[in-house]
Write a protein that binds this DNA or RNA. Sequence first.
DNA 1: CTTTATTGATTGATCAGTCAATGAACGGCT
DNA 2: AGCCGTTCATTGACTGATCAATCAATAAAG
Lengths: 197, 197
Amino acid sequence: MGRAVVVPLRKRALIDAAIAAIGERGSLDVTMSDIAGRAGVSSALAHHYFGAKDELLFATMRHLLSELGSDVRAALTKAAGPRARISAVVAVNFSAHQFRPEIIAAWLAFYVESQRSAPLRRLLRIYARRLHANLLSGFSALLPREEAERAAEATAALIDGLYIRRALKDGLPNSASAISLVEDFVEAKLSQAGVAR
Amino acid sequence: MGRAVVVPLRKRALIDAAIAAIGERGSLDVTMSDIAGRAGVSSALAHHYFGAKDELLFATMRHLLSELGSDVRAALTKAAGPRARISAVVAVNFSAHQFRPEIIAAWLAFYVESQRSAPLRRLLRIYARRLHANLLSGFSALLPREEAERAAEATAALIDGLYIRRALKDGLPNSASAISLVEDFVEAKLSQAGVAR
DNA sequence: CTTTATTGATTGATCAGTCAATGAACGGCT
DNA sequence: AGCCGTTCATTGACTGATCAATCAATAAAG
């Protein structure tokens, strides 16, 4: 029945379906049949393209990471000065593109799974390092080295914490309030250190 | 206040085994046989006492929550003044009793599961409200109402974020560094608002 | 003699992964 | 243009493993 389709299309459809399934269920405990069904294909085809479930999940996580990465890169090119770099990184993490329920739930699920899967852990470490480096590139121009390190660390943790709370639908009505909490924190840090603005 | 509910020996052993199993695996995806085996009994006995797996997991989460609750209560009675109350709450969350790898991993796993399970979600909401209320009771004596709300919200999120990062074994070598990050944040908030220390 | 504790064996359901079969495109070769 | 073989896409049906949950049986306690 199905007409000839380009290979990447099916893979892409399966990855999108995986994000949807994981996001809806809130964990990686989704079946290949469910994912394949959402993509409109049989589970056998998902195995054909990805080999094992692990690999599909890995590809899905990599896809999320790569989208976040390109969003961040785009935002950083538009940011003028260190203070703007910090805000750009924060804004992207809570942008409409990233701060969607299914994306958040998927991130949380991958965080958990990474405790068991070394490849996944490696992937998440890349994300963590990149986030830290991006924040640090802003802070280190405004604060002494040691303080900049700690500010970047705390900001990253705060972002993660707000993600969790969003996933649980506790408080945090929208992304604007999340951004303002982080920005307040950054301002507090900078004003404490007497940075002129 | 807390009436002491007598938990039968076997139930308690199974709950402890569940924490160990969940903590080691990093998710709730553990078998009844595994848990029962750790407790030195058959899986049939676990079903005898708890009925279904869900109920054992629920009881396990409740146990963790109740231990955290009593730790917090104990710390708060020793805290003199609002600033000390904030520090007490922070200190308990990162105390040697709470900030252990298996406990952290279990919390994270329950967070994820709560997206699917309404009873679990209810339980976690109790924890979130209590944490918020405890922090707020300190902040609201030091900051204007609106700012106190936001400071409590951000502090709670920061604590959650540090838990995640600890679970992933990214940075955060020990609980002391986590405490100092949170305390720095609190100080920044207060000094920004011009609170005398 | 009734109630509780405990187990091994079993059942039934769920799933990841495999496989053989079918079809659809592609590219020669006359 | 028509024919042929190779390769890729796709599926339904199947297998094997895993596990929650049940149950009937045994022992111990009171």
